[in-house]
Design a binder for these strands. Sequence first.
DNA 1: GGGCCGCGATACCCGGCGGGTATCGTGGCG
DNA 2: CGCCACGATACCCGCCGGGTATCGCGGCCC
Lengths: 281, 281
Amino acid sequence: METRELRYFVAVAEELHFGRAAERLGIAQPPLSRAIQQLERRLGVTLLDRTNRTIALTEAGTVLLHEGRAALDAVEAADRRTRRAAAASGDPGIVLVTKAGASSELLPKLLDAYAAEPGAVTVDVLLCAPGEQERLLRDGRADVALLHRPFDSAAGFDTEELRTEEQVAVLPAGHPLTARAHLRLADVTALPGLPMPRWPGPDGTYPDGPGPRVHDHAQLLQLIALGRAAAVLPESSRARLPRDLATVPLLDAPKVTTVIAWPPHSRSLALAGLVRAATRL
Amino acid sequence: METRELRYFVAVAEELHFGRAAERLGIAQPPLSRAIQQLERRLGVTLLDRTNRTIALTEAGTVLLHEGRAALDAVEAADRRTRRAAAASGDPGIVLVTKAGASSELLPKLLDAYAAEPGAVTVDVLLCAPGEQERLLRDGRADVALLHRPFDSAAGFDTEELRTEEQVAVLPAGHPLTARAHLRLADVTALPGLPMPRWPGPDGTYPDGPGPRVHDHAQLLQLIALGRAAAVLPESSRARLPRDLATVPLLDAPKVTTVIAWPPHSRSLALAGLVRAATRL
DNA sequence: GGGCCGCGATACCCGGCGGGTATCGTGGCG
DNA sequence: CGCCACGATACCCGCCGGGTATCGCGGCCC
């Protein structure tokens, strides 16, 4: 199976429309139809149910969509990491990715601790939207990530736990609940007029619900300040909250564990040094 | 980057010889030379140092060899799992792989416990040589594995720990040391005339040393019975040892943890059921 | 209910590229 | 010093990936 075939199939499976998929791929529709047919013939498997107007994934097609995405990520990672290894030979810098707005106190400590080690290389920090880190790590744009379980999934990576912390409710300053010494999750998840915001899932779509749609930390904070939302965040994020927001400890929110994660087959000495520095913090 | 190019490069990088690599790939040597040149040009990276008689991997080439193998495994897994999903639609059986000769009491219990669950599907058991399991799991020939840390690496998989056990020394019956109530690692690793056997590494080559080369459990047991080797094995393997072998508890050997492992992006309900059954044992 | 439209499939053509054979250039080694 | 081993180059061919034109068909709107 060639990566070109995989790319084509993933495009069709995601769009469920040959025309749009072809456009996305920058080719015409007929070659795409033929390519998918050839793929099905070579696999000996029906991937799409064509009901002559619309198409749907078969069971096998669903499997190939998932596995194919993972495979394409792996190929892309091979490409990118090879390029980087050649470009930066002499200074094989590390790219660390983390959620924008998170780990605001841990990250500087980690960077300082690692920089003090003998033989430390430069560490580029990449800040990204929540849920994007795993993808960057998988497809080679990053070498190591700070993840926050249980929000982020560390499946498929090697990890070391760095710290565990409680969560707090974040509310507009002056909200009645800010007078309370502590809250329970149920108190904040169903506040009238202050719905919990919705984050996009791994596929880029938003779940249904009343809350405003957000895709980064700054957006979220602004919405809370405007009195349009409430949120539950790890207590370490308190340090970087603007003054017009208030926090209240939560008694029953799940704890958040910060982990450092890297692709399991990494062979980089520099990465090993960074992980060592992290675990010693 | 196409998988064809990756396959070609991996072959050349492993053989370090264009002629042999071409033979292995079933093509002639000139197209292979050209393909590698094209790959290098497209990546903008030198992958091989050609000293006009012999070739060596550059730094970037080493990276591409590792990442490329992983990527090829992922593509192969996509192919195989798709075929299996289509072929066995209706009975999407599970393939479980474990080291031949290990987990001899745990495995039947697990299979029985799972078979008793409602909705259980057939589980095919695949026995393989030590160190092969990870590869089978990665390239889609198996869905789930029983691994034994620290011998097997569970890097890149999701796991659940099932049990932890001590190790014992395995010696020919009648050997003087079998009279002792317990031993230390140092007592058995440097026995005159009874060297520890050598296992092949992930790349198929054997480390240097005096011990005989073995590649499966049965071989190992026969060599011990012949008085040509000693071994250190988990105590659960005692149950299936032939009578002409004796075991002595070890005080300072690392404990062995049996884990059930599966690819992190699995979506199979049947697999989830098997894992649940395993954790309840 | 009929015609139009949207969408996937088919037909056919072309150019590029993957693969083959023949041969060269050049170090290493006997 | 000359042969040999090995990678690179030159050149040719056939296939396949991609394009345009068109068909078949079912839904939908008037």
